[in-house]
């Protein structure tokens, strides 16, 4: 086969994406595509892993055994999702060690939402309902992302996330049908988690410079603002049903657009949290680093055991 020129390779690559086909690990791909995807998938993986921390705070204090078992299962899923995504990221040519190292040294980011504290049990309800709800909207889109291993991981993840959101909403529902104090607790959690959940979709389209390439490469198939709007439109009626209200006085149904209008997001807060000054950034990173270091002896012991077995077989 004659050697293809760079231009031919690029055209072929883009055509494959435009034809709704998938790029697989050994296929030729643009260097920029590989780099951007590696960054996005590994950040996504780190977010799943850090996402375990705010919820872990409530395992021992869950109100009953049913809630505790569900919360444990949810957190175990987050670990699983992190692993699906690390394994997808590795197919882009980076090792697990390199990916983890970028995370533990603070070079790679994770979703800013996990830098907020979980102050009451209602926060566990609000996280499942809002944070997982927002994640689902984004992840449903990514199920058809052009990179095969990423899209396949997303399909598995979406299948599991719906339990997360439903268990969260059920916690909110129970609180809202409980005493006045319990309902107030649900309202308070909504007040604190609503805006950070909206920020999960990222900056407004006009301030989002990276979107162009990712759209062209069929990774991002809907814009930040479109996804955010979809989330708001779905979630407001769910809050109405609970009988609690979004902390946004400008939120109202718009007959003309058939969408909810909403107030302005505090982008200063968003930028502060992203650049490391959120309420829990330092706590999350140190918890993660401690867990990694505390696990080293387990990794070492298992490696030593595996090596010993190999030597035994060889000496037989």
């Amino acid at each position: 086969m004659p050697e293809l020129t760079q231009q031919e390779l690029e055209t072929r690559f883009q055509k494959k994406i435009d034809d709704n086909l998938y790029i697989e690990p050994k296929d030729w791909m643009l260097d920029k595509y590989r780099k951007n995807l590696l960054r996005q998938i590994s950040q996504h993986a780190h977010s799943e892993v850090v996402g375990m921390l705010p919820e872990a705070n409530w395992i021992t204090r869950a109100p009953n055994l049913r809630r505790k078992a569900a919360l444990l299962a949810k957190i175990q899923d987050e670990a699983g999702h992190g692993l699906y995504l690390y394994s997808a990221a590795e197919t882009l040519g980076s090792s697990r060690e390199e990916i983890l190292n970028a995370f533990l040294t603070g070079k790679a980011k994770y979703s800013s939402i996990f830098n907020y504290p979980t102050l009451t049990w209602a926060d566990i309800g609000a996280i499942g309902w809002l944070v997982d709800g927002a994640a689902i909207i984004n992840q449903v889109m990514l199920q058809r992302a052009s990179y095969g291993p990423y899209a396949r991981a997303m399909i598995r993840i979406c299948r599991e996330e719906s339990f997360h959101q439903r268990q969260g909403y059920e916690i909110m529902l129970t609180l809202c049908r409980g005493t006045a104090e319990q309902k107030a607790m649900a309202q308070d959690a909504l007040n604190r988690w609503w805006w950070p959940s909206l920020m999960m979709f990222g900056p407004h389209d006009k301030d989002s410079p990276n979107t162009g390439d990712m759209t062209k490469w069929r990774v991002k198939r809907e814009s930040n603002d479109e996804l955010r709007q979809k989330f708001i439109d779905r979630t407001v009626p769910q809050a109405d049903f609970l009988g609690i209200t979004m902390p946004d006085k400008d939120l109202k149904w718009n007959e003309t657009t058939q969408h909810y209008d909403h107030g302005e997001i505090d982008w200063k807060e968003f930028n502060d949290v992203i650049s490391g000054h959120g309420p829990c950034n330092r706590e999350r990173m140190s918890a993660r680093i401690k867990a990694h270091n505390d696990g080293k002896w387990v990794r070492d012991a298992a490696t030593a055991y595996a090596n010993k077995k190999v030597h035994k077989v060889k000496s037989l």
């Binding site: 692993l83 598995r156 298992a302 055991y305």
Partner: peptide
């Protein structure tokens, strides 16, 4: 095929 894992040996 469904993905990959890391492990020191087959049993793990």
């Amino acid at each position: 095929h469904c993905g990959s894992v890391h492990a020191p040996d087959g049993a793990m």
